[in-house]
Amino acid sequence: MSRRENNWPVALAFLAPNFLGFLAFMALPVLFSLVMAFTNWQMTENAPLEFVGFSNFADLLSDKRFWGFFGNTLYLMLGIPVSIAGSLFLAVILHQRLRGVVLFRTMFYLPTITSGVALFILWKAIFNPEFGPLNNMLNALFDALRLQATAPEWLLSVAWAKPAIMIMGIWTAVGGTNMLLYLAGLSNVPPELYEAAQLDGAGKWALFRHVTWPQLGPTTFFIVVMSAIGGLQGGFEQARVMTGGGPAESTITLGYYIYQKGFEEYQLGYASTIAWVMFIIIFVMTLINWKFGRSAFAMEV
């Protein structure tokens, strides 16, 4: 076993191809943006580049819009647990021996393969407050129940735009990447575990709780971490196409804010600062995941 204790020459050899590219195309630009977070870098001004110390960070702390958009981002992230649970649920059903599984899996995956723009245009039509199928259904429901309610204006309303985007997000994600990951994870669970547990007389729920869930630990950990990262950085494309960040900036997320500062207002120094504050937030979240994930998702690290 001594060969396994500190095997860095072998590790280096295995790591090298990836690590070189990683340095050039990821680590270096990331480092560069870190340096820029401490400057007044403005792509469109003739002013000389100056180091401004922590003043960008100080500005950010008192930037009400930043905190507002952080709130929007967290709000939209509320959809993530729902969508992960949905993916797991669908994966468990699909994993059973049912007819037409191939067809179902393909159908669930369709939203993920559909081009983003086409999807967003479609959902815009669905959310159309007057002619959209969603409100037609809601209004019919209200009429049937004799309720004096009016259906929300969805994307046009400050209060409903975020839930609308969240619904779309859940719908798109539930049968996509995460479901596939769970399916792959489920197929890696050794069947003897189930057999052993069944011999002990475990029921369906007990099987899931004590065999499936722990065995899916690494998968769940991966999904949670990546979803949290994606959620914090996301929200840009759909908001840009569907609402333009509106109404009244209620759908602007942090990712969108970076775009706005960096590529609409050309304050790249400040945009880098936002990115790095986001990085700190995400990093802390991941560390928490890492610490608690080991027990919660029964990880072996």
């Binding site: 509106g246 009244a248 900036e249 706005q260 609409e264 207002e265």
Partner: peptide, 21 residues
Amino acid sequence: INPYVAHRIFQRHLDLMRNRQ
């Protein structure tokens, strides 16, 4: 002022006004 910043602020309140907020 950066013209895009000014425009953005104007647009935001125009939105709020049009939504009667």
